[in-house]
Nucleic acid binder design. Structure first.
Lengths: 185, 185
DNA sequence: CTTATTAAACCGACCGCCCGGTCTATTATG
DNA sequence: CATAATAGACCGGGCGGTCGGTTTAATAAG
């Protein structure tokens, strides 16, 4: 059911997603959905937590295959792209965080979710021994933010979903190049 | 009135912005607003066009002060940051484009708006003589997308508006460094 | 094996509110 | 008086959320 909601949120965004859409996608009924979740908002929080977990463990798993340091850093963007190719809905964490951060009650979970993700990237960057005066967390923010922004931008200007996937891979590779160029002295 | 609408859209986003909010912010009445605009959607399109114009001419003006080539490229991120500091609402173009791109009727204007902006950045990058095999348009996409993503991300994890401004400047400087490192051989 | 009992799971018609949009009355302008 | 501009009460539809009732499944009792 969380899967169905994630797909709908990913497709329409939180505000445009109607409860009826989610109900229909889940194959259940309105009563069943509200049996498990208090509100649309709490459902969104659950989706955020679920996909966040899925995303982070997925990336971490792929990163673990590369040895620490520069090789692992080089594996970062490819891992993100692989995850995104495997399940584009997982990146709903970015859109949901954006929306949930606007509401007082859910701002903290949204921020915490993003911070956790930044921390993981910062860890990888840090292990690659960046030059003096380069804060790994700053770089991590740029990478995470840039990936999100690129996905958004390409979704807007892209033609069809297939080309979007391709364009994102292209942009991801370039972002990686920029990251490496910055870190190597 | 477009200014008022822009402010509201920037603060709440298209979907959460209520017509009553915009009416109140404009200091006019509902009748007056609908005398000038057919719908909420067309109002959003007008806001997008207005701020896009404002943003592009503003950046272009700042860029014109620097001589073409690398100096002008170096002026790009500072110009964007200056514009953003001068009027953070102007960056509502990114959020509005995202939303309007979801609707069939307005998808093209949203995409066109973003493409125009990418074109300008690509032009600047191109004039800085990037190495072989580096597509200026690809780089431009990364810069534009990254800036948008960074603004979004920092809005989420940032504490107060003042620190957001500062963090964005910091991230922007880093993004510039990455861009220069990539372009210089 | 059958039947009785119970509670969790599920259904979908329904509700009240709120929002985008309309419309008529009124005011300003010339 | 004519016209443009504005006001704000009003409306219909759609939305998130509710609630009484029904099915399902697990367990106990005979």
């Amino acid at each position: 059911m969380i899967d169905a909601a994630a797909a709908v949120f990913a497709r329409l965004g939180y505000d445009r997603a109607r409860m009826s859409d989610i109900v229909q996608a889940s194959g259940l009924s309105k009563g069943a959905v509200y049996f498990y979740f208090d509100s649309k908002e709490s459902l969104a929080v659950a989706v955020l937590a679920s996909r966040q977990e899925q995303w982070i463990t997925g990336v971490a798993q792929l990163l673990a295959a590369a040895e620490p340091g520069l090789p692992r850093l080089r594996a970062l963007l490819p891992a993100m792209l692989t995850l995104h190719r495997r399940d584009p809905d997982a990146w709903v964490i970015a859109r949901l965080s954006q929306t949930l951060a606007q509401t007082e009650a859910t701002r903290d979970v949204a921020a915490a979710s993003m911070r956790r993700w930044i921390d993981l990237v910062a860890e990888v960057i840090s292990s690659a021994d960046p030059p003096e005066g380069t804060d790994p967390r700053d770089l991590a923010r740029v990478v995470v933010g840039a990936f999100d922004g690129l996905k958004t931008l390409i979704d807007i200007v892209g033609e069809d979903p297939a080309s979007v996937q391709h364009e994102l891979a292209r942009a991801g590779a370039l972002l990686e190049r920029m990251l490496i160029a910055t870190i190597s002295r």
